[in-house]
Design a protein around this nucleic acid. Structure first.
Ligand code: MN
Ligand code: MN
Ligand code: ZN
Ligand code: ZN
Lengths: 136, 136
DNA sequence: CAAGACAGTGCAACTCGATTGCAAAGTTTA
DNA sequence: TAAACTTTGCAATCGAGTTGCACTGTCTTG
């Protein structure tokens, strides 16, 4: 597991206590988390502090956000080497049973043929269904 | 252009005044609309009436909703013959310049190879960038 | 054609995730 | 050290979405 401190240093974000705790917590996860879930997992930490740290993290490309259709934005730590460019985009999977949202890091988004003169700069691709744990 | 009355009859939704006006308005559009935009375009109509009509339309598969990441759900009339099954899913395009959200009806979502034992039942695929009008 | 049952509508209130203003606390700079 | 700047905590606010409720319109049945 990569160390929070190293990631902050690498991306040029000042390592405050809040940021270190938050990033460490995010690094432990196997799924993308909502702000609410972070609040619950980090009881001593204030919501707006978490919120603003997330904004910083996103700005400096430590994390990316996912809009899975639940109404709550989810966040996940970027993979090593990710620069949040087009080639780093990947599918996300939302399990309608356990309600977890996963990064399918091994499923990059293929190039999509768009109508003439349309230009892609970003994407939010969410597949919904049952995850392996729930599809039994 | 298909007629609102016919569509309601075909899908088995009672043709009330609100529903006819709303569906006619939606049929005129070349982009997906938010509830707010419908409120503005149909000044005499109440927000919650529009909202509940949209819910009915969606339930009876006259329209589908799109989560384009703007925080406002967009709605678009389904293509003729659409049953809102997996094979009817298509990409959507959100233009970050003009802020229009388009249905790319001619761009069905290809089958995606998922991790072992994951099962897809739905998807929300939004490509972001510049539309042909804005990419100049 | 009533009378009652049922579905649809309009208005106002409310929910809840996201965001912001502001003052206090912490950090950096000169 | 003092001023300048950044971060944090708390409370307030925003806004899309949703709901309760009374009223109205439509349908069903005797
Ligand atoms: Mn991801
Ligand atoms: Mn569409
Ligand atoms: Zn699951
Ligand atoms: Zn555009």
């Amino acid at each position: 597991m990569r160390k929070a401190e190293d990631i902050l240093a690498l991306k040029g974000v000042k390592p405050t206590a809040v940021r270190l705790n938050l990033l460490e917590f995010l690094l432990e996860q196997d799924k993308a988390l909502s702000l609410k879930e972070m609040e619950i997992g980090l009881l001593h930490m204030d919501r707006s502090s978490i919120f603003r740290s997330l904004k910083s993290f996103e700005e400096y490309k430590l994390i990316h956000s996912i809009n899975d259709g639940t109404g709550m934005t989810k966040y996940a730590v970027c993979a090593e080497g990710c620069n949040c460019e087009l080639e780093d985009l990947h599918y996300h999977f939302y399990c309608t049973s356990c309600e977890k949202t996963f990064c399918l890091m091994d499923h990059p988004i293929p190039s999509i043929i768009l109508p003439k003169n349309f230009k892609m700069t970003d994407a939010n691709m969410v597949i919904k269904g049952l995850c392996d744990q729930c599809n039994k």
